[in-house]
Amino acid sequence: MKSLKIFNFTLLLLFLFSNTVFSQEAENPVTEKALQNEILKMDSLFFNVAFNKCDLTLYKKIMSPDIEFYDDRSGLNTSFDVEIASFKDRCSRPFAVTRQLVSATVHVLGDYGAVEIGVHEFYEDGKKVQRGKFIIIWERKDGSWIIKRTVSYDHEPV
């Protein structure tokens, strides 16, 4: 009888332990490093290519149609069309406005996507004019990453 209790207790421990191991594996199928590499690659694609080089097609592809963009300078924008109009306006200026990433950290958001938190700088014709902080919620959708929500704040002239 005592050996049966020990056996049952051992089975219970094995069951609980294995469940913990497998659930962690299922919750985080991608390593933090791999996720960070993916998101930083998408950040580069969105800003270094689409934003900085005024590639409207790519810009539209990476941004969610139901974008929410919170900005300390302009407030809240929930219109994809307004965001595209702002992009076109910026790209039609007689001087180039570009963005450079200074630093960023990336964290998994369950099975939804990732959050990128960082600092970026803005330039006009190569001259640094502003530094700010940002938070981007990236959604994993149909095998691709799209920007779902953005908070851009604490902008200061340089």
Results as ranks from 00 to 15, higher is better:
1 M>I: 02
4 L>Y: 11
5 K>L: 15
6 I>E: 04
6 I>Q: 05
6 I>P: 01
7 F>D: 01
8 N>P: 00
8 N>S: 12
10 T>V: 14
12 L>F: 14
14 L>T: 12
17 F>K: 04
17 F>E: 06
21 V>M: 12
28 N>I: 02
30 V>C: 01
34 A>D: 15
35 L>P: 10
35 L>N: 11
37 N>P: 01
38 E>K: 04
38 E>N: 07
39 I>A: 09
41 K>V: 04
42 M>I: 13
43 D>A: 10
43 D>R: 07
45 L>H: 06
46 F>V: 08
46 F>T: 10
46 F>S: 09
48 N>D: 15
49 V>S: 11
49 V>G: 00
50 A>K: 04
52 N>Q: 13
53 K>D: 14
56 L>R: 07
57 T>K: 13
66 D>K: 13
68 E>G: 07
69 F>I: 10
71 D>M: 01
72 D>Q: 02
74 S>I: 13
75 G>A: 07
77 N>C: 06
77 N>E: 06
77 N>V: 07
79 S>P: 00
81 D>L: 03
83 E>H: 01
83 E>Q: 06
84 I>P: 00
84 I>R: 00
90 R>E: 00
91 C>G: 06
92 S>P: 01
94 P>C: 03
98 T>A: 10
99 R>P: 02
100 Q>S: 13
101 L>E: 04
109 L>E: 13
110 G>V: 06
115 V>M: 14
120 H>P: 04
123 Y>I: 02
125 D>I: 05
126 G>H: 11
127 K>L: 09
129 V>C: 02
133 K>A: 10
134 F>P: 07
139 E>C: 02
141 K>V: 11
141 K>Y: 11
144 S>F: 06
146 I>M: 09
149 R>N: 12
152 S>G: 10
152 S>P: 08
153 Y>V: 13
154 D>M: 05
155 H>W: 15
155 H>L: 09
156 E>K: 13
156 E>F: 07
